[in-house]
Amino acid sequence: MSETKETREKELGEKAVIKVSEMDPRFKYEIRKIPGAEKIMLCFQCGTCTADCPIARFSDSYRPRKLMRMTQLGLKDRILSSDVIWLCAACFTCVDHCPQDVGIASIIRALRNLAVDEGFIPRVYKELGSCVLKTGYAYRIPELRHRKREEQGLPPLPKANVESIAKLSDVTGFSKLFEEKKVA
């Protein structure tokens, strides 16, 4: 992990005093419009998500409850520039256990999408994305693998329609996200 990550994680956790100027009261409304994130306002901070989160047990910084509160408070810049939002493993335990049906994992996905819009994208997602655009597959399947399939009696892998994927990438705005983005 990079040093910047450590710094950011600390920042998210240790700055106890929040300045009013840091808060964007419109942020929660912005989030609420995103499919899957409609129920952000329903979080009443019971902490079931954090208590049941497998990642939170081993991380000093990843706390879904805290992220929900920060989102409600509108601490947009702190959240979107933080690497902490990238630690959710999407196991959906919080989604199943939340008494308010907040849909925490979808809200974290929405936060990630917004972070990417702002230019923060972990290198691994850049790689996965460009591989899907180039080959249809999320990983580059080496030539050796293709040959081995034949030896193993497996049928050839279905090919991707790269032109179609490129078109879909353009119309969904995905392509644009990959242009001149800095790596978080």
């Binding site: 899957g36 999408n113 899907v132 597959y137 892998l157 090919k159 991707a160 879909l168």
Partner: peptide, 27 residues
């Protein structure tokens, strides 16, 4: 039956773009 054409289900790209994930899965 083998897929006539293939693209990723979309899951790994959901964190980047929810719309792209939906579209890849739907395809």
């Amino acid at each position: 039956v083998e897929m006539p054409e293939f693209n990723c289900c979309g899951l790994p790209l959901d964190p980047v773009s929810h719309d792209m994930m939906l579209t890849l899965a739907a395809r």
